[in-house]
């Protein structure tokens, strides 16, 4: 195994992710865990495990990203997930384009430039039903396991229109549809359509530059992939480990900062 040359930590709202890369930018180790309330301790433990497993030295540069990034003190730098996702997906897919990341708290659409930088981005409105949490909540309310959401939506015969933009209203609308005997799969398809509609508005806002890429845990949802593909008029491109892209981008940035390639000035605390 090659030596660890950069570490990225993505302390997200639902999961904590860690990626270690070698000098060539290839992933040599990674970890995904449910986010711990004491994220600092969790990251310390993950780093210890990494050192034990991959023999990473103490001086390896590291970058933290995600909502908990400020809590992770023992890193070289902290960078937002927008920059990290752009960088991670660019490193994984090797192409500029428009990147969609549907997260638990935030959804973002990022235009990735020719050098992997975020050129422009938009994020969901606070009150809009445009996040992964929207799907999660509804899935649990309907008693559908999260990983069955996509297949059941895609397999549906029809599609119910869910036109509420507010999560509370949407739930109320769904209960009515069920009461009227609508098929569960059709409701789920409508629900996905509603989410993608919101995302689509953001995609148009930053401009669709092909390919349309998708990262984040929701990328595993087949209905999200298909409906986004319909929107783009071609299949969406998904990296191998969509959930790791934030941490991967952070690791790449760590690696580059050690090589003096990353120009951004270090943040002052």
């Amino acid at each position: 195994m090659s030596a660890v040359a950069g570490i990225g930590i993505d302390a997200g709202s639902t999961t904590t992710k860690l990626v270690a890369v070698d000098g060539g930018g290839a992933i040599v180790a990674h970890a995904i865990e449910a986010a711990h309330p004491r994220v600092e301790d969790q990251v310390a433990r993950l780093l210890d495990e990494l050192r034990a497993r991959a023999g990473a030295g103490v001086g390896v540069p590291s970058v933290a990203t995600g909502y908990g990034r400020k809590l992770v003190k023992e890193v070289t730098r902290q960078v937002t997930e927008i920059t990290c996702h752009a960088r991670g997906v660019f490193a994984a897919l090797g192409t500029p384009g428009t990147l969609v990341d549907i997260g638990g708290q935030d959804s973002k659409v990022i235009r990735v430039g020719a050098d992997g930088r975020a050129v422009d981005f938009l994020m969901n409105d606070k009150c809009a039903a445009g996040t992964g949490r929207f799907l999660e909540n509804t899935a649990s309310r309907l008693g559908v396991p999260l990983d069955e959401l996509g297949p059941r939506a895609i397999g549906a015969r029809g599609e119910e229109a869910i036109s509420s933009t507010c999560t509370v209203f949407a739930e109320s609308e769904i209960i009515s549809l069920i009461a009227h005997g609508a098929e569960l799969g059709s409701i789920l398809k409508g629900l996905h359509r509603s989410l993608i509609g919101r995302i689509g508005a953001m995609v148009r806002g930053v401009g669709l530059e092909r390919p349309l890429m998708l990262s984040g845990g929701v990328a595993r949802n087949v209905a999200v992939r298909e409906l986004l593909g319909e929107l783009a008029g071609e299949p969406v491109v998904v990296p191998e480990d969509p959930q790791l892209m934030g941490a991967y981008g952070a690791a790449i940035l760590a690696l580059e900062s050690s090589e003096g390639r990353f120009q951004a000035p270090t943040r002052r605390e």
Binding site: Y67, T83, V119, F121, M123, K126
Partner: peptide, 21 residues
């Protein structure tokens, strides 16, 4: 109540990172 520090500051910082880039 219409503002969340975490979400909001992250957006501001990402904006700064874009300028720095």
């Amino acid at each position: 109540r219409a503002w969340a520090d975490e979400q909001g500051n992250a957006r501001l910082e990402a904006f700064v990172e874009m300028m720095e880039g």
